[in-house]
Design a protein around this nucleic acid. Structure first.
Length: 189
DNA sequence: TAGCAGATACCTT
DNA sequence: AAGGTATCTGCTA
């Protein structure tokens, strides 16, 4: 085991800021992005570690992230640092990884699939450290409206807009302010 | 059919 | 043992 300190890489692509936190075993501890021009993505991701080294520099994983946001890639095998999330979160994220690109599912359906409750699933999804690699943006409320999406710790309309944009880039169709039924995917218990 | 309580269920500390 | 929730459902109009 190496003992180097964790590193934050931060870079911009098409006007968006991206940041990732890599641990001393080259695993991804967390990721964040922001559409408006603030430093919050790097700051936010840095809070996951003690005193990470901040490197304002691009990184292959950041490029991958940017492509994911454009819907131009599917999440590849990324080494996630699963040790610092709870077993319940891991159960939820396991389902998230199965949602096909271009589809969405609901908090309630995930809850049914893993024998839990919708609100508990909501809290787990909300604390996803790896957006958009773990595609928490593909979860909507039972109403099929866009629902919530927090960016860098803040829960506001900016996040919802970003969520909708991500989904549309992936080919999800909308019927007014609702995701069209044809894009609903149900996880198997 | 849109809006709003109230009610669960259940995870986290 | 208490607190919090990125929900759900049924009741209103």
């Amino acid at each position: 085991m190496s003992t180097s300190i964790p590193k934050v890489f931060a870079a911009q692509h098409n006007g968006k800021k991206f940041a990732i936190l890599i641990d001393d075993n080259d695993r991804l501890v967390g990721s964040a992005f922001s559409s408006r021009g603030s430093e919050s993505a790097a700051k936010h991701v840095a809070r996951l570690a003690g005193k990470p080294m901040i490197i304002e520099q691009d990184h292959p994983l950041i490029k991958e992230m940017a492509r994911l946001c454009e819907g131009e890639a599917s999440s590849k095998n990324v080494n996630l640092d699963l040790e610092r999330v709870s077993t319940f979160q891991r159960r939820v994220y396991e389902v998230l990884e199965k949602i096909p690109k271009g589809k969405v599912t609901t908090y309630g359906m995930i809850a049914d699939a893993i024998d839990s409750g919708p609100r508990a699933v909501g809290t787990a999804v909300a604390s996803n450290p790896w957006p958009p690699f773990v595609p928490c943006h593909r979860v909507v409320p039972a109403s099929m409206t866009i629902g919530n999406y927090s960016m860098n710790g803040r829960l506001d309309s900016e996040g919802s807009n970003a969520k909708r944009e991500l989904l549309q880039n992936e080919g999800v169709k909308f019927d007014g302010d609702r995701v069209s039924e044809s894009c609903l995917w149900k996880p198997r218990a």
